[in-house]
Simulated assay, not measured.
Amino acid sequence: MKHSRVTARAHTNIALIKYWGKRDTTLFLPMNSSLSLTLDEFYTDTTVSFIDGDQDVFFLNGVEQPLEECVKISKFIELFRTQSSIKSAVLVESHNHVPTAAGLASSASAFAALGTALNELFVLRMDKQTLSTFVRQGSGSATRSIYGGFVEWQMGIETDGSDSYAIKVDDADWNIAMLTIPVNTRKKEISSREGMKLTVETSPFYPAWVEQAGQDIKAIKQAINNQDFIALGELTEANGMKMHGTMLGANPPFSYWEPLTVKVLQRIREIRGQGIPCYYTMDAGPNVKVICQADKADEIKKLLDQSFPDNTTIISGVGKDAYLLSVE
């Protein structure tokens, strides 16, 4: 049955074992597998509907986007259009529910929500695993936002990307939470894509990173299976710092850290030294995320807010699978 209007929601995710480097920049195929935690606090709602005319139209947070952005979205929509007998243009209305102060990239939830909605609008009936290979081509990390809980994005080996998809590892329903401490939410001088490319091409540390990431993902999946929070946290923290270490080996060297970043990391180590288990990680930016036990989240937030009153910490629980909000 053809639908006229579909709305979907997807949550953002934070990688615990990082994705850093592509083996194919067109299909967004990663150099290593990664594993993430989906967060309930940050999400995107996207509505898609068929419209008359030859051109797709894209609104973000109520503002019509310029041609450059619309071209990117149209290219993504075309992935779904080519799988369907329906060739109509599409209106995309996307709303990011990601606090501005969080400094969290919303591309993962954005493309996961858009893909989930388009899958229904074009009546394709893809299962989640297949859908994850489609949303990957909008944003690599969107692959993981198709699912809730702990999610693995398997790197795959095929050149067409058919085996590079996401699978749910665990529901993460065992006292897990994550804190976000916004350090700087301005636009980065070096984008993630640029930083990734420079690291892969010039850092002598990079091959060791790829090898170690493969070992880390096996170890963290065992920790999840055992519900061993300490092992989970230690692996998360070590993997994130190794990723940032590869950047210092690039030519020219670069870093996303800022002075406040270092102070936040030190404070988290101090809190851990007081007997409260908590472990930090960072993506390609200065903002710090902390994985902790959910029943300790309020206590850790209070301590961090006292130390950094101008950088309010945000608590997130575990997000769920991408899903449909309405179908007309």
Rank of each mutant, 00 (worst) to 15 (best):
I291G: 02
R125Y: 03
K263Q: 15
S84M: 10
I157C: 00
G285K: 03
I86W: 00
N184Q: 09
K188L: 11
I268P: 02
F150P: 03
R5H: 14
L118C: 05
K2G: 05
V151D: 07
I190F: 07
N119L: 05
Y43W: 12
M241N: 14
M282P: 05
R125D: 13
R144P: 10
S316H: 05
L232W: 01
L37I: 15
A231G: 01
M243K: 06
P99D: 14
G245Q: 14
Y165P: 06
V63Q: 15
E237T: 12
V200N: 09
I73R: 14
R125F: 00
A284M: 05
E328N: 14
W20R: 08
A177T: 11
T133R: 14
Q274V: 00
V262T: 13
G319S: 04
Q212R: 08
P252M: 08
V48W: 11
F80C: 10
F58T: 13
P252F: 09
T143M: 10
L260Q: 15
I77S: 09
D40I: 01
A102T: 08
S33E: 09
Q306Y: 04
L198Q: 13
Q293H: 03
V123H: 11
I14E: 02
A89T: 08
G319P: 05
F308I: 09
I220E: 01
G214M: 12
A142W: 01
Q306L: 12
S34C: 03
G273E: 07
L260N: 12
T261D: 14
A172Y: 02
S88M: 02
Q222W: 04
A89S: 15
M247Y: 03
T159D: 15
F150H: 06
I17Y: 02
P259L: 10
L325Y: 02
E64V: 10
G62V: 10
E194D: 12
R81W: 02
I176M: 15
T312A: 14
F134N: 00
G245K: 11
T180K: 07
D173A: 14
G138V: 04
N96Y: 14
I14H: 06
H97D: 12
F122C: 05
E299R: 08
Q154T: 09
